[in-house]
C-alpha cells in the first residue's frame, strides 16, 4: 500500500509522469511480485489516464489521415473527430463494463477492492494504448498510400485486435501475479502458524481465485463486444470517402455486420 500511496503522492506532475508510470507498467516493474505485495498495482490511475488519452489521440490522428487524403476531398475535421473519439471509445467502454465486473468479482469472493480493479484495468488500458499508438505510423503510412476504404477498415480492426489481445494477456498475467502475491502475503501473516490446520490446505481460496479468473475472462469477452459496438456507435473514425463528414452516423446495423461487409468488399 505504501508504494501506491507514494505513486499517488507524486501526482500533479501532469502527463509526463503518466508516461513514466506507463513505462514502468510496460517494463513490468509495476507488476513484479515484490511490487504487488500490497495487493494492488502501484500506479496512479489519474496520471495514467493522461498518458492513455494522449496515446489514443495520437492513434486517432493517424486513423483520420485517410479522410484528409481521400478522393472525396480533404476532410480535416475527421482528424479532430477521431482524436476526440478514440480515447472516448476506451473510457466509455470501461464505464459501461466496470460496474458489472466489480459486482461479479465481489460476489465470487474476490479480495480485490474497487480501487485495485480500477488500477489493474487502467494499467491494461495503458498497455493497449501504447501498442495501438506504436502501430499508428503504420496505419498513417497505409492511409497515405491507399485508396481502398475496406482495406483501411480491416487494417484498423486488425490493429485494434492485436493491441487488445496483448492488453488482455497483460491483464490475465497481472491478475495471476496478484493472486500469488496475495496468497504468499497471507501465508506469512503474523500468527498464521498458530492456527490449527490439517496437512492439506483448505481449498476455498484456490476456488475463489479460479472463479475470479473466470469472471475476468468473461468480462474480457464482454469488454471486447461492448468496445466493438461502442466503436460502431461512435463511428466514423476513418471516414468513408463516399459519404460527407459527420460527427456521428445514424444508428443502424452493427459492428460485426460492418466488418463482414468490409471483408466481402475487399475480396469481391
Amino acid at each position: 500500500m505504501a508504494m501506491i500511496e507514494e505513486a499517488e503522492r507524486e501526482g500533479g506532475g501532469g502527463w509526463t509522469r503518466g508516461f513514466r508510470d506507463l513505462d514502468r507498467v510496460l517494463r513490468g516493474e509495476s507488476t513484479r511480485p515484490s511490487a504487488l505485495r500490497g495487493g494492488s498495482i502501484a500506479v496512479a490511475p489519474g496520471r495514467l489516464t493522461w498518458a492513455v488519452t494522449v496515446l489514443c489521440m495520437a492513434y486517432g490522428a493517424c486513423m483520420g489521415v485517410f479522410a484528409v487524403l481521400s478522393p472525396g476531398g480533404p476532410r480535416s475535421m475527421q482528424v479532430v473527430a477521431s482524436m476526440v473519439k478514440t480515447p472516448l471509445l476506451f473510457y466509455l467502454t470501461l464505464a459501461v463494463t466496470l460496474p458489472s465486473l466489480y459486482v461479479l468479482n465481489a460476489l465470487v469472493g474476490s479480495r480485490l477492492s474497487f480501487g485495485s480493479v480500477f488500477r489493474l484495468l487502467s494499467a491494461s488500458l495503458g498497455v493497449n494504448a501504447a501498442v495501438l499508438a506504436s502501430m499508428g505510423p503504420i496505419v498513417a503510412f497505409f492511409s497515405v498510400c491507399t485508396t481502398s476504404y475496406p482495406f483501411m477498415v480491416v487494417l484498423n480492426v486488425a490493429v485494434f485486435a492485436a493491441s487488445g489481445f496483448l492488453a488482455l494477456g497483460f491483464l490475465l498475467q497481472t491478475l495471476q501475479r496478484l493472486s500469488v502475491a496475495r496468497a504468499s502475503s497471507s501465508a506469512v501473516e503474523p500468527g498464521a502458524d498458530d492456527r490449527p490446520s490439517g496437512p492439506v490446505p483448505p481449498m476455498t481460496d484456490e476456488f475463489a481465485r479460479r472463479r475470479v479468473r473466470l469472471i475476468f475472462r468473461i468480462w474480457m469477452v464482454l469488454f471486447g463486444l461492448v468496445g466493438a459496438q461502442m466503436g460502431w456507435v461512435l463511428r466514423p473514425f476513418i471516414g468513408n470517402p463516399n459519404l460527407p463528414f459527420a460527427w456521428f452516423r445514424p444508428r443502424e446495423s452493427n459492428f460485426f455486420e460492418a466488418v463482414l461487409q468490409a471483408l466481402a468488399a475487399l475480396f469481391s
Binding site: D23, L26, G28, A130, V131, S134, M135, I138, L166
Partner: peptide, 18 residues
Amino acid sequence: FAISLPPFFVVNTLFGLR
C-alpha cells in the same frame, strides 16, 4: 525499417526484453 520500429519497441518492452 523506421515505420516498423515503434511496435517492435513496445512489444519488446512488454515481453521484458527492453
